[in-house]
Amino acid sequence: MAGQSDPHISLFSAAEIEFVAEDELVEIVPNISMEPLNFTCGDFGPFRPQMPTEVPMWLAVALKKRGKCVICPPQWMSVDKLTQVLEAERDTEYAFEPLPFHYVELSRLLFDHAHEDIPDLYMVRTLIEDIRDVRFHKLESSLKLINERVNAVKLKNVSAMEMNIVRPFLVRTLQSFYKLDSPQMIHNPVTTAYRQAQAADRGPRLELRRRHMIDLLRR
């Protein structure tokens, strides 16, 4: 009966999330000549030496592995931009800065396969690690705010990988609260004295329960 407990059905593996991220476009500068590629996922090229062109990440990585191009790191991966983001992340308690939905996977792919194309590699890597840590810490601590039945949780600007990591825990938590805190469970005519005592205990919480939707990130 546990519809969501089977990991094969409803969860995305990290590899599958990366697969999705690999479709994001990135700019490359080829060092070879090649005719346009008419793929099922779109047309790319033509490729001429020193002429920048946009391709999906997986294609960029494939060309890079064969030494056929230089990958231009996206704008958000510059030291300046990342420093700004990190500062902003540190300044707010619950809000998240807008970063690409797949920033974790994209930066990881670039570090693994194109590290020589990234200026200030060491700084960029450290900054992204710091940003990830700060954001994840925020996400974790914001989960503590869930302490009652809610209908929805807003997760503005949370990225794919961050979302995937908290998914199993968050879904189970929300399900449990939803089930145990349901009005039927609380307001049903109770027969035993024990239950009545419990219902009475719950009295003060009714006031809190008016808010059914929770915005973790904007309080």
């Binding site: 929805a152 949780v153 503005k156 600007n157 949370v158």
Partner: peptide, 24 residues
């Protein structure tokens, strides 16, 4: 509309990403 009462809204244009009950 995410709640039973109908006064709670999840606006995808503003909120972008969220966790919502499947039935809603």
């Amino acid at each position: 509309q995410v709640g039973e009462s109908g006064d709670e809204q999840f606006d995808f244009a503003v909120d972008g990403l969220g966790v919502i009950r499947y039935t809603a």
